[in-house]
């Protein structure tokens, strides 16, 4: 009786392991899926040589996205001196874009840089989200669905540009707040986002991303010495819809030059690849160890049975 039970138990146990393995294997079936950039995605090129820091884009964004009133009016330029933890202003739940001033040695005037969501081709926020709350639209915008978001804030960890912000102030309806390229109100209809339209200096140029890359390269070519010979965003994080041209090295205007030149997703595929391997090999390996480790007991058991029968 004892013997039978243990053998049956063994099979049942093995089955439970296999079932667990099959059920769980599905969870990562499309871990390796690749996400091609949309051919007609729109983009914006930000030319730092043209920006004068008028903050019109901030004001336009605030109005378009119906964000709360800011403590300082948009024509107050003292905000450029604000520092929190030694850092310049950043986006948060009340503002999707901010302009900051950078005094760069060797430049006769300060530089200004607008920041907002860069709308990556292969967004880290999207690929790290375990409830699929993000979508990259064919128009190029990275939009977010607050109805399924759990509030884990992994997207904020994953975004190499520190873009998604969280509505910490709400206990019952918190959500991620970030620039959505004015998707619902403008981009969907082919119109440029509010900030671009508001820019009086043509520092922001809107068009198809591919064309914007050409524009950028052409400006670099036509104005030797004026720009750093690189478009920030052409390859950063696998390429972004919003890109920057700068007269000074990008780290001087607060852009992180350590951001990898490939999608953030590539850093986790190595781990995701071991998942099927562990699911397949471990059950056999450890059941095998069990059989090996307990073989002496088993032999003893059999011998005892033989003796009893004899």
């Amino acid at each position: 009786m004892n013997k039978q039970l243990s053998r049956r138990g063994f099979i049942k146990g093995g089955l439970a392991g296999t079932v667990a393995a099959t059920v769980l294997k599905d969870t990562n079936a499309d871990a390796g899926h690749h996400f091609e950039a949309y051919p007609n995605a729109m983009g914006v090129i930000v030319d730092l040589t043209r920006c004068v820091g008028c903050r019109s884009c901030e004001a336009a964004c605030n109005k378009e996205q119906e964000l709360p009133a800011q403590p300082e009016p948009f024509d107050d330029f003292n905000v450029f001196d604000q520092r929190l933890h030694g850092q310049r202003r950043r986006t948060d739940e009340t503002r999707y874009t901010v302009v900051n001033r950078y005094e760069v040695p060797g430049q006769d005037h300060p530089l200004f840089r607008k920041q907002q969501c860069n709308h990556c081709n292969e967004p880290a926020c999207l690929t790290s989200c375990f409830v699929n709350a993000y979508t990259k639209t064919p128009e190029g915008a990275v939009i977010y669905n607050s109805k399924v978001c759990v509030g884990c804030r992994t997207c904020m960890i994953a975004c190499p540009f520190y873009v998604p912000t969280f509505k910490y102030s709400s206990a019952f309806k918190p959500k991620i707040m970030k620039c959505v390229f004015c998707y619902d109100t403008r981009l969907k209809e082919g119109k440029p986002p509010a900030c671009v339209e508001a820019c009086p200096q043509e520092a922001l140029t809107f068009g198809k991303r591919d064309d914007m890359l050409d524009v950028g390269h052409q400006r670099i070519r036509m104005n030797p010495g004026k720009y750093v010979e690189h478009i920030y965003g052409e390859h950063e994080a696998g390429g972004t819809s919003w890109m920057y041209l700068s007269p000074v090295p990008f780290d001087k205007v607060g852009l992180d030059t350590d951001v990898p030149q490939e999608p953030i997703l590539n850093y986790v595929t190595g781990f995701l690849a071991i998942v099927p391997m562990v699911l397949t090999i471990w059950p056999a390996l450890f059941t095998g160890f069990h059989l090996l480790a307990t073989r002496k007991d088993r032999i003893e058991e059999l011998e005892n049975d033989d003796k009893q029968e004899a």
Binding site: D26, T27, N28, A29, D30, A31, H33, T127, S128, C129, F130, V131, N132, A133, V148, C149, V150, G151, C152, T154, L265, V268, F271, L272
Partner: peptide, 17 residues
Amino acid sequence: RLPYPMFISLGPAAVLF
């Protein structure tokens, strides 16, 4: 919304999933 990643909206390519 803790059960969301299990039943409501799945993001299977994410490590957190």
